[in-house]
C-alpha cells in the first residue's frame, strides 16, 4: 500500500482536473497532494514534520503509557520547533502508519520531498524498548537515493526503555537532541538544493548562507544527540554518520561558495580572516576562538 496518494478520483476525473487546475491558478499555495493518514485540511504549505500513529503501541505498552508517550513527544517537538525558530510546522497524523526502512522507496520519498516533508517520525515497541523511527526525507531522497551515499540512509532509529515512561515523561527524552540534529540537517540539505537550482546570484547566495547556518546548527547539536552510556538513544553508527554528514555539509557549502566566481558574500571574509581555505579552516568555529570563550 502506498504511503502517499495523490488526490485522484476515477469518477468525473476530467471535471476534477479542470476544477483543480483552475483552483491552482487562483490559489497556487493551496495546491497540495494528500499525505495518507493525515488530516489534509489542516496541513499547511511549507516545511513539515509529520508524526505518525502511535496506535500500535497501545497493545504492547498499554493505553496509559501510550498516552504519556504522545504527550512527551508533543512537548519534545514543541521545544525542538522553538529552537529551530519555527522553520517547520509539526503535524500529528493519527492514522498514518510509519513503516520500516524498506517501505521508504525512492518514489515514495520523492513524493514526500515534493510535499516539503522534512521529517517523519514514528514509534514501535520492541521487547523492553521503545523504538523511535525518523525518516529524514531530504537526506534519504538526495543523499541516499540521489547521491548514492550508502553510509547515510536517512532512516534512523533511537531506543528508549519502556520503563522510563513510568519515571515521568519529563525524563523520557530529556537531554537528547537527535530530533533537532535531524531537523537541522533536513533544512540544511533542502536549502543547499535550492541554492544549486537557483540561477539568480543573490538568491543563490542567500540559500547558501541559510544552508550553512543550518549545517552549523546541526554540528552544534551533535554532542547533545550522542547515545547515552547505557546505549539508549541513537545507534552509535547512525549518530556518527549524521555527525559526519553535518560536518561535511558545512565544509562543502563553504568550499562551494569560495569556488563560485559570482560569490561575493561573507564566507570570503571568513576565509581571509582564517588565513586560508584548507579543510581545517572551513569548519563552523575555529577551535582556538572557542577555547578563548570558556
Amino acid at each position: 500500500m502506498a504511503l502517499v496518494t495523490l488526490k485522484t478520483s476515477h469518477h468525473a476525473i476530467g471535471l476534477a482536473c479542470i476544477i483543480l487546475t483552475g483552483f491552482m491558478l487562483i490559489f497556487p499555495q493551496n495546491a497540495q497532494a494528500r499525505i495518507e493518514g493525515c488530516d489534509n485540511a489542516s496541513l499547511q504549505d511549507g516545511d513539515k514534520i509529520v508524526i505518525g500513529s502511535m496506535n500500535d503501541l497501545v497493545g504492547s505498552i498499554g493505553t496509559r503509557r501510550t498516552r504519556a508517550m504522545i504527550a512527551a513527544f508533543e512537548m519534545k517537538f514543541d521545544k525542538a520547533r522553538s529552537e529551530l525558530h519555527r522553520e517547520a510546522g509539526v503535524f500529528y497524523c493519527g492514522d498514518r502508519l510509519v513503516r520500516e526502512s524498506d517501505d521508504y522507496s525512492a518514489s515514495i520519498v520523492e513524493i514526500l520531498n515534493d510535499e516539503e516533508v522534512l521529517l517523519e517520525v514514528g514509534a514501535r515497541a520492541e521487547d523492553s524498548d521503545l523504538v523511535i523511527t525518523y525518516i529524514v526525507v531530504p537526506i534519504r531522497h538526495y543523499a541516499f537515493f540521489g547521491g548514492h551515499q550508502p553510509l547515510i540512509e536517512g532512516y534512523h532509529e533511537a531506543l528508549y526503555e519502556k520503563s522510563r515512561i513510568d519515571e515521568g515523561l519529563e525524563h523520557l527524552f530529556r537531554a537528547n537532541a537527535e530530533l533537532r540534529l535531524m531537523a537541522a540537517l533536513a533544512l540544511a540539505l533542502r536549502y543547499e538544493k535550492l541554492a544549486e537550482a537557483e540561477s539568480s546570484t543573490e538568491d543563490r547566495q542567500a540559500f547558501m548562507h541559510r544552508s550553512r547556518a543550518f549545517y552549523c546548527d546541526a554540528v552544534g547539536s551533535i554532542n547533545d544527540a550522542a547515545p547515552s552510556d547505557d546505549l539508549l538513544g541513537l545507534l552509535e553508527e547512525d549518530w556518527r554518520a549524521l555527525g559526519a554528514f553535518a560536518e561535511a555539509g558545512a565544509r562543502r557549502l563553504f568550499q562551494t561558495a569560495l569556488n563560485d566566481p559570482a560569490y561575493a558574500g561573507s564566507l570570503a571574509v571568513v576565509a581571509l580572516e582564517r588565513g586560508g581555505a584548507d579543510d581545517s579552516d572551513l569548519g563552523c568555529l575555529l577551535t582556538a576562538s572557542s577555547e578563548d570563550d570558556q
Binding site: 541559510r210 547556518a213 552549523c216 571568513v270 568555529l285 575555529l286 582556538a288 576562538s289
Partner: peptide
C-alpha cells in the same frame, strides 16, 4: 580579553547572512 575579530568572524561563519557582525 579576546581579539574581537575572532568573535565577529565566528558569528559570520555560523550565520553568513549576518551583515551586523560584518
Amino acid at each position: 580579553s579576546g581579539d574581537p575579530a575572532h568573535a565577529f568572524v565566528d558569528a559570520i561563519s555560523i550565520d553568513p547572512e549576518n551583515p551586523t557582525a560584518l
